[in-house]
Amino acid sequence: MKKIDWVRKLTSRKLWTAVASFVSMMIVATGGAENTATQVTALIMAGASVVAYIIGEGLTDSANIGLEEGEVTEE
């Protein structure tokens, strides 16, 4: 069985766009207002940005742990 790369999945913009689209369509399909669906979509995408930033910073920090003080990596 193939191991799932959760970091890559959780930082994927495609995943979060699909989740936001699904949730907003479910709101509209169940009789919710389009304004509510738009607000929920915006909240999901804002949350996704925060998740991606936190994971990205964590990966950067963990890559720099082994470096000596004052040494910089080239990215």
Score class of each variant (00 low, 15 high):
11 T>K: 15
11 T>P: 00
11 T>I: 10
11 T>W: 02
12 S>C: 07
12 S>K: 05
12 S>G: 04
12 S>N: 10
12 S>M: 09
13 R>I: 06
14 K>S: 09
14 K>M: 05
14 K>L: 14
14 K>D: 12
15 L>E: 09
15 L>Y: 15
15 L>F: 14
15 L>H: 09
16 W>A: 06
16 W>F: 08
16 W>H: 15
16 W>E: 05
17 T>E: 08
18 A>C: 02
18 A>V: 02
18 A>H: 07
19 V>E: 03
19 V>N: 04
19 V>D: 00
19 V>R: 01
19 V>M: 05
20 A>P: 00
20 A>R: 01
20 A>E: 01
20 A>K: 01
21 S>V: 02
21 S>R: 09
22 F>K: 09
22 F>D: 08
23 V>Y: 08
23 V>K: 06
23 V>M: 01
24 S>G: 02
24 S>A: 08
24 S>E: 00
25 M>P: 01
25 M>S: 12
25 M>Q: 15
25 M>I: 02
26 M>G: 07
26 M>C: 07
26 M>A: 15
26 M>Q: 09
27 I>Q: 00
27 I>A: 03
27 I>N: 00
27 I>R: 02
27 I>D: 00
27 I>V: 14
28 V>Q: 06
28 V>D: 02
28 V>A: 05
28 V>Y: 01
28 V>T: 14
29 A>N: 12
29 A>D: 10
29 A>G: 09
30 T>E: 09
30 T>L: 02
31 G>F: 02
32 G>F: 03
32 G>E: 00
32 G>L: 03
32 G>K: 04
33 A>Y: 01
33 A>S: 15
33 A>C: 04
33 A>N: 08
34 E>M: 12
34 E>N: 13
34 E>G: 12
35 N>I: 07
35 N>W: 04
35 N>M: 06
35 N>A: 14
36 T>N: 13
36 T>K: 14
37 A>D: 04
37 A>R: 04
37 A>V: 03
37 A>I: 03
38 T>L: 10
38 T>E: 12
39 Q>H: 08
39 Q>T: 12
39 Q>Y: 09
39 Q>W: 10
39 Q>C: 03
39 Q>L: 11
40 V>G: 08
40 V>F: 01
40 V>I: 15
40 V>S: 06
40 V>E: 11
41 T>A: 13
41 T>F: 00
41 T>S: 15
41 T>D: 04
41 T>L: 06
41 T>M: 10
42 A>Y: 07
43 L>C: 07
43 L>E: 12
43 L>M: 13
44 I>Q: 08
45 M>C: 06
45 M>L: 15
45 M>T: 12
46 A>K: 15
46 A>P: 01
46 A>N: 13
46 A>L: 15
47 G>W: 09
47 G>F: 09
48 A>F: 14
48 A>P: 00
48 A>R: 09
48 A>S: 14
48 A>I: 06
